Simulated assay, not measured.
Amino acid sequence: MTERRRHKQQVRKAFDSAADSYDRAAAVQREVCHRLATLAATTPPSGSVSRILDAGCGTGFGLDLIARAQPDAHIVALDFAPAMLARVRQNSSASTISPLCADLEALPLAAGSLDAAWSSLALQWCDPALSLAQIAHALRPGGVAWIATLGPATLWELREAFARVDEASHVIRFHPPAHWIAAAEKAGLTAVASDLEPAYALAPDLRGLLRDIKAIGAHSVGEQRRRKPLGRAAWRTLEAAYETHRRPDGQLPATYDLILLALRKQESDHD
């Protein structure tokens, strides 16, 4: 099995397992959807909008935001995890939705079949060049992709604290904004707007933060090897290191290095 295929299986398994707990812990994910909706409102596609892709829809929170902004559009709700898709119908009140279980790096969509694409906190698990090329292929000329993904400073507090415990890679590193923009340009997409303001998960203690990360399925993606549970001494070291980040309001933060992009397909593209 190739490393890429192993990674894909790991992603699917992690988010299938998290489907039942995702909505209870996804406060940051909901905030990001609202931020992405604000960006989308200021960067509409040219012409009418009849078909939109939600690429990596998860349990479907973003679908109502998309439907509210584009009430006449049909939405393709795509996710790689079948258990996530199974929750879409019960979570969304939008009526014109077609669930689709597929890979963001191999979209089963015809060229130029989309007026817009929305993707909130899904593409960070993908190869930027592959996934953006697929989205660009499916967009019509003048169509827009609204992307929320994560940068390399995501969960930096956790990475710094774990460095006091061992040398293992406990936190996956994501691509910086310049990498995403370069991949977009190569795919024929031009960045017309961006926002790099971070988002924060908050909890009263470290156990609460880690519990929420586990509940949304992101805890095991990108691990290089199976690790034994932390012993008591290591846990105390981890807690003490993380405690230095406690905010004046008493909460412990976990930073999400958020990258918001509006990418327009060139009008002259005859893909």
Score class of each variant (00 low, 15 high):
Arg226Phe: 06
Leu238Asp: 06
Ser119Gly: 09
Pro253Cys: 10
Ser220Met: 12
Ser98His: 05
Tyr242Ala: 02
Ser169Leu: 05
Gly56Met: 10
Ser220Trp: 09
Ala234Cys: 11
Ala133Pro: 11
Gly143Phe: 00
Leu85Met: 05
Pro198Val: 13
Pro82Val: 03
Val28Thr: 13
Pro99Arg: 06
Ala81Asn: 08
Ser46Arg: 10
Ala148Ile: 09
Ser48Thr: 10
Thr42Asn: 15
Ala106Val: 07
Leu107His: 05
Val49Tyr: 03
Leu109Val: 09
Ser120Lys: 12
Ala153Phe: 00
Leu252Tyr: 00
Leu158Glu: 08
Asn91Val: 12
Arg12Tyr: 09
His245Gln: 10
Ala116Phe: 02
Gly60Gln: 08
Leu210Ala: 03
Thr190Arg: 12
Asp115Val: 00
His270Cys: 13
Tyr22Met: 08
Thr43Tyr: 04
Ala193Val: 11
Trp180Thr: 04
Ala184Ile: 05
Asp127Ala: 10
Ser268Tyr: 02
Ala26Asn: 03
Arg236Glu: 12
Pro128Ile: 07
Val221Ala: 01
Val76Ile: 15
Lys214Ser: 06
Ile181Glu: 15
Glu267Asn: 10
His74Asp: 11
Gly142Arg: 00
Ala69Met: 14
Ala86Asp: 07
Ser113Asp: 03
Ser268Gly: 09
Asp269Pro: 01
Ala106Gly: 07
Arg68Asn: 13
Arg140Cys: 04
Asp205Arg: 03
Glu167Leu: 13
Lys214Cys: 01
Thr38Pro: 10
Pro177Thr: 00
Arg5Ala: 14
His245Ala: 07
Ala67Gln: 07
Asp127Pro: 01
Asp205Glu: 14
Pro204Lys: 09
Leu189Thr: 01
Lys214Phe: 02
Ser119Phe: 03
Phe61Ser: 05
Asp20Thr: 15
Leu139Ile: 01
Tyr200Leu: 12
Thr96Ala: 15
Trp125Ser: 04
Gln134Gly: 15
Glu267Lys: 15
Leu263Gly: 06
Asp166Val: 08
Leu230Ile: 11
Asp115Phe: 00
Ala262Gln: 13
Pro204Phe: 14
Val192Tyr: 11
Pro44Trp: 01
Leu150Lys: 04
Arg5Glu: 14
Arg68Ser: 14
Ala234Ile: 11
Gln266Tyr: 01
Leu155Pro: 00
Leu85Glu: 04
Gln90Tyr: 08
Ile135Ser: 07
Glu105Val: 06
Pro99Lys: 06
Glu105Met: 04
Leu238Gly: 03
Ala40Asn: 05
Asp20Trp: 15
Arg6Phe: 05
Ser46Thr: 07
His7Trp: 12
Leu261Met: 12
Lys13His: 14
Ala122Pro: 00
Ala14Val: 11
